[in-house]
Design a protein around this nucleic acid. Structure first.
Length: 476
RNA sequence: UCCUCAGUAGCUCAGUCGGUUAGAGCGGCGGACUGUUAAUCCGUAGGUCGUAGGUUCAAGUCCUACCUGGGGAGCCA
């Protein structure tokens, strides 16, 4: 008999169907009721066996976590809680699971504990749901861009040093750290290294992405990204996945339109295809937050997701944001830890949260930041003070998208590189796009895990990636 | 990296002012029961109190350092 998935049995199965299913035992009650799950859906199949007909010693091997193959027929359930169940005629234990040492019990576990057993946590309802939603979102990303005629560009994961400018990087080397080849002045001789130069893991595919856009017009990247920053927060990972579209013939407004449309499409896709999982995650979140005071609780998950889809993101410039913040109640009452002191100061988390959660009460796109606090490649505005940057801020998550229109003028870009003390020769290939057939172009980066965090209503980014890498932690 | 809180049984936690043999629920094991829904009932085993020092007649409890984790901040996606 051909094995079918539990999702199929529950969705399409009819009473009388003879089926074979395989999966892992969640609970075994009354020596009669096996709740079994194979990860195809959040729902378990209740399999009923008449213990009178089976060997007692064999039944004892059916324990929480054991892997079973069950043969039998679907029948209408006599009990409450499920419409259909399986009457087992034959079972085989594919993999035993010693209940003395198996860490997952049929009870609530803390997310912190589950993180310490990341190799087994996919077998829980919560992580099963998160993984399915994560998959759906990844699939939707390719779907969206493919439908729009974008090409998936594979930018390198190993990059030459100093060419990206953003943050601490992980070194990639095959040199023996106990015996490093040295130059005469005592510095490390990287010409002896694998690539004959210093190399690192990528912190962004953007610069290479721009090369693609300046040839095939519209591209996106979707790959792992590495930041060696010592960030210990529920929103940062050392290894995460980032989506970076880059579009030729596209200004900042087009860029914002695309980003907003993209995010709404992804959320709608999750609502359409992961209703059961999101329903479960919503209940989980409400259960977790029931001890919090009313004003600190999140909006119900499905309601929150629909709200994002149904409302236009607020769009304001950095200068307007400073204005709003200067005149805000918390600023006047001195409630901000960092008071707003006019143009030029970088916005702190508390300011972003005020704008998103109190003032606009919806996602906010902030544009035209002072050039001093943004990257060298952003297009300079005629005012000489600001650049065509945009950050999308989401409630509870903060910055989910960061992007900009890129500086397409060779001279202006080169000036900025010099102003910031960057080495022109490191960017020769990047500058070439501005030398040879330059064009207006824009793009942004979307943190994939931050999106998954938002859509699943989980509160720690380490719980929306299967095997999180963070400072002092790279187990599994 | 900074601030802050925590670490006691497999898990979640209690442990009073420093004082005798460190507790509970769940889970496990043994048994009873058998249409259960985190089943129920009876019984039972299970501990280097994060690690290393220190104070004290006496430390789970006080002090110091370190490790790990949570929350907040910075950096950012």
């Amino acid at each position: 008999m051909k094995r079918i998935k539990i999702k199929e049995a529950l969705l399409q199965g009819k009473a009388g169907d003879e089926i074979l299913i395989k999966g892992w035992v969640r609970t075994f009650r009354s020596n009669r009721f096996i709740h079994i799950n194979d990860g195809s859906t959040i729902h378990n199949l209740q399999a009923v066996l008449d213990f009178e007909n089976f060997d007692e010693q064999e039944l004892k091997r059916i324990t929480t976590g054991a892997c079973l193959a069950l043969e039998g027929s679907l029948v209408e359930s006599m009990g409450k809680g499920q419409h259909i169940e399986m009457q087992v005629t034959k079972f085989e234990i594919l993999g035993e699971c010693d209940p003395n040492v198996y860490p997952l019990q049929p009870k609530k576990h803390s997310l912190e504990f589950l993180r310490s057993i990341a190799h087994l946590r996919p077998r829980t309802n919560t992580f099963g749901a998160v993984l399915r939603v994560r998959h759906a979102l990844a699939y939707a990303i390719h779907n969206y861009f493919n439908n729009k005629g974008f090409f998936y560009l594979h930018t390198p994961i190993i990059t030459g040093s100093d060419c990206e400018g953003a943050g601490e990087m992980f070194r990639v080397s095959t040199l023996d750290p106990r015996n490093l080849p040295k130059n005469e002045d005592g510095t490390i001789d990287y010409s002896k290294d694998f690539f004959g130069r210093e190399t690192n893991l990528t912190v962004s595919g953007q610069l290479e992405g721009e090369l693609g856009a300046m040839a095939i017009s519209e591209i996106y990247t979707f790959g792992p990204t590495f930041r060696a920053e010592n960030s210990n927060t529920p929103r940062h990972l050392a290894e995460f996945w980032m989506i970076e579209p880059e579009m030729a013939f596209c200004d900042l407004n087009d860029n914002m339109d695309l980003a907003e449309d993209f995010l709404k499409y992804l959320i709608q896709y999750a609502l359409n295809t992961c209703a059961d999982d999101l329903q479960f995650l919503s209940a989980r979140q409400q259960e977790e937050e029931k001890n919090k005071p009313q004003d600190q609780r999140s909006m119900e998950l499905l309601e929150k997701l629909k709200f994002i889809i149904d409302n236009r993101f607020a769009r304001i410039t950095y200068t307007e944001a400073i204005d709003i913040l200067e005149n805000s109640k918390p600023n006047k009452k001195g409630q901000f830890q960092f008071p707003i002191s006019g143009f030029g100061t970088d916005l702190q988390s508390e300011h972003e949260r005020y704008l998103v959660e109190k003032h606009f009460k919806c996602p906010v796109i902030l544009t035209d930041y002072p050039k001093e606090i943004k990257a060298f490649y952003m297009k300079q505005n005629p005012d000489g003070k600001t650049v065509r940057a945009m950050d999308i801020l989401f409630p509870g998550i903060g910055e989910i998208v960061g992007g900009s229109q890129r500086e397409e003028s060779y001279d202006k870009l080169l000036n900025r590189i010099h102003e910031l003390g960057l080495k022109e020769e490191d960017f020769w290939w990047y500058l070439d796009t501005r030398r040879f057939g330059s064009a207006e172009h824009s793009g942004f980066g979307l943190g994939f895990e931050r999106l998954v965090l938002f859509v699943t209503g989980m509160s720690n980014i380490r719980d929306v990636i299967p095997f999180p890498r963070t400072p002092k932690s790279a187990e599994f």
